[in-house]
């Protein structure tokens, strides 16, 4: 994908409209001939970040492969809302087997394509955070370790949303879920737990690991495109807000995702061969409170009986991310002021 510096933004939110781009730099979604891999009519909730992320990711993968794509899906929201029998929203070849095995099934698809000499057909595996960091991790780690030719995408909404918002290994500290209720001295999920899957993926030494959010869809598409330039195991971790589980307004999905990145709580970066190669710099740093206060899963941290001490601990995590990844613009590698390279 070619890149183009952008000096002006369409709105104050730093979202970049397609009309500010040269034609070849516009999003896949702006193309009337896009593949519509995840087509309309599915049953996702209003404001679903996962549906948005999957649509952009798969259409970008379809464009990158000239439509030669097979998708393997883990059990979860994405699977349930897209294929209520006998309907399907998928306009790609699509296979759902089980909750825990999507990476292994994807390996099998890639192996079959290889043995048949059809390596121009590429494979995407996709799952939510539960299917990636928890129950599917054994299969995912095996797929990474063998370096099978699969792009695995995690749509991370930070809990088991399909079963009613229970804690996963990706649930952040202090967040209320149905199994980490906002009660007691340490309300919500505990501190000091959880898996940093992008880092774990990098530790496998695979060619490409990246994070993205649904707030920056140019960036998301570019990362899918970049991932498709490699053959071997690749991993893309996309933060997808869940209005139902996070208690955020459906029309705030993009805003919440943007605040996750701009507060530093969710670092957006790329890594190749185990080393971070690029980060998306924070252009307008926000305190974590701006991010947390839009979500009722953190409601217990604010108000009359609020917990500024806990908010401060979350802020410390964000600060740590900012310093570790060099997320502030003046720190960031290879970025000019007020410019972005989508």
């Amino acid at each position: 994908m070619t890149s183009q510096p952008v000096r002006f933004y369409q709105v104050g939110s730093f979202a970049v409209g397609n009309r500010l781009f040269d034609k070849e730099n516009r999003t896949v979604q702006s193309d009337p001939h896009r593949s519509n891999s995840l087509d309309s009519g599915h049953r996702a909730c209003q404001g679903c970040g996962e549906a948005l992320g999957a649509r952009y990711a798969l259409d970008a993968a379809m464009r990158a492969t000239g439509g030669q794509l097979i998708a393997v899906n883990a059990t979860g929201c994405l699977e349930v809302f897209s294929t209520p029998y006998p309907e399907t929203s998928w306009r790609v070849a699509w296979l759902h087997s089980l909750f825990a095995n999507a990476p292994a099934v994807a390996t099998g698809v890639a192996a079959a394509l290889k043995v048949k000499g059809m390596q121009d057909v590429r494979v995407v595996g996709q799952a939510g955070d539960g299917g990636t960091v928890d129950i599917g991790f054994g299969c995912l780690s095996g797929m990474f370790e063998r370096n099978d030719d699969v792009l695995f995408i995690c749509y991370d909404n930070e809990a088991y949303m399909n079963t009613g918002v229970q804690r996963s290994g990706a649930t952040p500290p202090a967040a209320r879920t149905a199994t980490t209720e906002a009660v007691g001295a340490e309300p919500g999920n505990v501190f000091g737990q959880g898996k940093d899957l992008p880092r774990l993926a990098m530790a496998h030494g695979i060619d490409y690991v990246a994070t993205a959010t649904v707030a920056d869809l140019h960036d998301l598409e570019a990362k899918v495109e970049r991932a498709m330039q490699f053959h071997g195991a690749r991993y893309l971790h996309i933060l997808v807000p869940c209005p139902l589980g996070w208690g955020s307004a459906p029309n705030d999905t993009i805003r919440v995702a943007r605040l996750a990145a701009e507060s530093g709580i969710f670092p957006v970066f790329e890594a190749e061969h185990g080393e971070v190669t690029a980060v998306s710099p924070i252009r307008h740093r926000e305190p974590v409170e701006s991010y947390l206060s839009l979500q009722s899963r953190y409601a217990h941290l604010f108000g009359e009986h609020g917990r500024p001490d806990i908010v401060a601990r979350i802020q410390a995590i964000a600060d740590h991310n900012i310093s570790t990844y060099g997320l502030l613009e003046e720190q960031a590698v290879g970025t000019g002021s007020n410019e972005t390279s989508p």
Binding site: L95, A104, T107, G108, A112, K116
Partner: peptide, 15 residues
Amino acid sequence: FAAMSVSIGASATGA
């Protein structure tokens, strides 16, 4: 679990 899962993916792809 992966052995059978890989077999599922391969078989569904015609191998």
